[in-house]
């Protein structure tokens, strides 16, 4: 609200000075009027810069408590660190260039008796401001790509396999069970009782566990290999607190490796918020209820997680007999390839 009032006042001040200008303008020599306009506006520029930069700093501090809490995943802590370095670099460049821009506009106001400096180029200067950004950017590229490679390629293929499946407008998660393999699925097998279209003739499906509805659980400190898909349109599985996001694309599988580092209970302490919960949101426009497509994520200690998982029913135990006996000759597509 403070900001609204401050900026509102600024607007009113400008309004007043402009109306003054207009009245002055009517009976004056054009040179004098232009001089007045120049000085009013360049003072405006300085005020705008100083107040604007001050407000930006103020907002950055004020809004800190609203920002995402500390990253709750291994890679997230690293990308956050990288993000802060990037912000520091661009922040410095931002301040220097904006201050120069507005300061020059203020300082070099028009004066009839003066000429601008005829200074069409300077190869040395141009070389400097080509090479310096190149070096800084190279550093950012190298650090960024190192992190990217680590996240995407440095993982063993043996994380706990969890499927996240999007549909209008909810999520389903499937745990691969002791064999750590998801049973095959095929979209034409989807039914009310088999929402993932699982092919029960695949032995790998026998120990799969599905949770549908409002909650998924993840163990702390265990590498997880997420496999994402969708049955209808593109969704995007976005876990802001884990700094994790991947699109769910019908007809192909996408993957993401991560390891949670903070349990929900620990996070409640960190955020000093008893009601804190991790969340999975849909972050790709997917239809009219896009904004409501979410699931609560609970990170447990590994032991708690195993207990919870034991309590969940195997998919195959809940499947109607008719579907189990169905001959799955139609299930010709094996849906577990990594998509490029």
């Amino acid at each position: 609200m403070m900001i609204t009032i401050l900026l509102g006042t600024l607007v009113v001040i400008r309004l007043m000075s402009v109306s003054q200008m207009a009245s002055v303008l009517s009976g004056e020599d054009e040179d004098v009027a232009q001089k007045r306009d120049n000085s009013m506006n360049s003072i405006g520029m300085m005020l705008f810069m100083v107040i604007g930069l001050a407000l930006m700093v103020y907002m950055t501090i004020k809004y800190q408590p609203f920002m995402l809490p500390v990253a709750a995943s291994v890679h997230g802590a690293e990308t956050d660190f990288l993000l802060n370095i990037n912000f520091a670099v661009i922040g410095v460049v931002f301040f220097i260039t904006q201050v120069m821009l507005f300061w020059f506009v203020y300082k070099y106001q028009h004066n009839k008796n003066r000429r601008a400096l005829f200074y069409p180029d300077n190869h040395k200067l141009e070389l400097i401001w080509t090479v310096v950004p190149t070096i800084v950017l190279s550093a950012l590229i190298v650090t960024g790509l190192r992190e990217w490679n680590k996240m995407t390629q440095g993982h063993p293929d043996d994380g706990m396999v969890v499927q996240v499946y999007g549909y209008q407008f909810n999520w389903i998660t499937r745990y691969s069970g002791p064999d750590n393999k998801l049973g095959r699925s095929y979209y034409k097998l989807i039914s009310d009782t088999n929402p993932l279209g699982i092919d029960y003739s695949d032995p790998a499906s026998k120990d799969d566990i599905m949770t549908k509805g409002n909650e998924m659980h993840l163990p702390k400190g265990v590498p997880i290999q997420f496999i994402f898909n969708s049955r209808d349109v593109i969704h995007s599985a976005y876990f802001p607190h884990f700094r994790t996001q991947m699109n769910c694309v019908p007809g192909m599988d996408t993957r993401f490796y991560m390891e949670a580092t903070i349990t929900t209970n620990e996070m409640k302490g960190i955020t000093k918020n008893e009601k804190f919960d991790y969340v999975l949101l849909c972050n790709k426009i997917c239809g009219v209820a896009h904004y409501n497509m979410k699931m609560t994520v609970v990170v447990d200690e590994p032991a708690e997680f195993s207990n919870w998982l034991k309590g969940e029913k195997k998919i195959i135990d809940a499947a109607p007999t008719a579907e189990l006996e169905q001959n799955n000759t139609t299930a010709s597509t094996v849906n577990t390839e990594v998509a490029l």
Binding site: N38, M100, L117, N122
Partner: peptide, 19 residues
């Protein structure tokens, strides 16, 4: 892009600016 920005700022340096 950076070159463009610096060139704009350099153009304003010691200019005689009509606003």
């Amino acid at each position: 892009s950076a070159v463009k920005v610096f060139n704009y700022i350099a153009t304003l340096w010691k200019a005689n600016i009509v606003l």
